[in-house]
Simulated scan of single mutants.
Amino acid sequence: MTGPSYLTTPQGRRIAYHKTEGHGPGVVFLGGFKSDMEGTKALHLEDWARAAGRAFLRFDYSGHGQSSGAFEDGCIGDWAADAMAVIAELTEAPQILVGSSMGGWISLLVCRDMPERVAGLVTIAAAPDFTEDSMWAGFDDAQRAALSRDGRVELPSEYSDEPYVITQRLIEDGRDRLVLRDALPLPFPVRFLQGTADEDVEMSVALRLLDHAQGPDMRLTLVDGADHRFSDSDCLGLIVQSIGEVTARVGGA
């Protein structure tokens, strides 16, 4: 496989990406927290898009994967700006966004801030507002004190031997990017996907998002027994099926 191409954002960050040419509406995959564009879902969708002749784009946020910067220096606002720069510079016409976990939150920020570039939305275990409702709300007094004193706190990760380093900037910036407190119009086809065995994002988050967002064509699908990775063959098939539903609704290929 050839190496990635790079886009330099207006903020000077160097974003790695892989772009597949094809017909529209194009599909953009937005990955999760400390994830990268080499994951199972991103590569499966790229293979599907190539076989279907669809335009497809996957990328790494700054501080993730092959993009520039350190993960600990980033925050939701930075990563949302990366996504918007990639969409603005590397795609044409409205796109179908596929956001996984944190990528669900990022995709909702894209929908809010540049709706003219969004044709439809598919989220997978979307985690809107998780820095506030999961991280900060779950910190004990000692962790909150450490965050205030040291500007950072370490949390264990079941996906890596390295802990998650959560910074005060991540928490404070996240408070400026919350999407479940104010109106959230989604005036295009939307499919929310959520596993019932997800231990990172509870079903209540998906139900809250469905109840809070406003749109003419929104559906939530719960998959019994699916975990946060949402990457077995059935789940991958459901993601592709959901993209197909959204595509049909917007009159695409």
Rank of each mutant, 00 (worst) to 15 (best):
E21M: 03
G3R: 09
I243H: 05
L109Q: 03
F56W: 11
L7F: 02
P163F: 13
T131N: 06
V223L: 15
G251D: 09
K19L: 15
C75L: 10
D113I: 01
P10S: 05
R14W: 07
V205E: 01
S35Q: 14
E89V: 07
E172M: 08
R175V: 01
G65F: 10
S134L: 10
V240E: 13
S148M: 13
I239T: 04
S148P: 00
A49G: 03
I76P: 14
V205S: 02
V28N: 06
M218Q: 15
H212Y: 04
M218N: 02
D60K: 11
F139N: 08
A52L: 11
E116L: 01
D161V: 07
A119M: 08
G215P: 07
Q168N: 12
A127R: 01
L222R: 14
I239L: 10
L108D: 00
G174E: 02
H64A: 15
D47G: 10
S35V: 11
Y17I: 14
T247N: 09
V122S: 01
G53S: 10
P216M: 03
Q194F: 03
M37W: 02
E199R: 14
S160W: 08
F59M: 10
L220R: 06
V27C: 05
I87K: 12
G3T: 05
L7Q: 03
G103C: 04
T8H: 00
M1P: 03
G252E: 11
S5V: 00
S101P: 00
D129K: 02
W48I: 12
S160N: 13
L186M: 08
R58Y: 07
S231M: 12
G12P: 01
V201N: 00
R181N: 12
M218G: 09
D140K: 08
G65I: 10
I171A: 05
W105F: 06
G237F: 08
P4R: 00
Y17E: 06
A16E: 04
T91V: 07
A80C: 14
T20D: 02
M114D: 00
V250Q: 04
K34C: 05
H64R: 13
L155P: 05
G151Q: 07
D182H: 10
H228R: 10
P25K: 07
A213W: 00
R191G: 02
G24Y: 02
V223A: 14
E172P: 05
P94V: 10
M135N: 09
S100Y: 00
A83Y: 11
V118Q: 04
Q66H: 13
S35D: 14
I239H: 03
D129N: 09
R144K: 15
S100L: 00
Q194Y: 07
S107P: 00
P189N: 09
D82L: 13
G65K: 05
R191F: 02
F29V: 14
T221F: 12
Y6D: 04
D200A: 09
P115H: 05
G63A: 15
D200C: 02
D173V: 13
C75I: 07
D73Q: 15
F188H: 09
Y61M: 12
L155Q: 14
A146P: 06
G12S: 05
G3Q: 09
I239Y: 06
G69C: 12
I15M: 04
F59W: 14
F230W: 12
F192C: 03
S107M: 02
L30C: 14
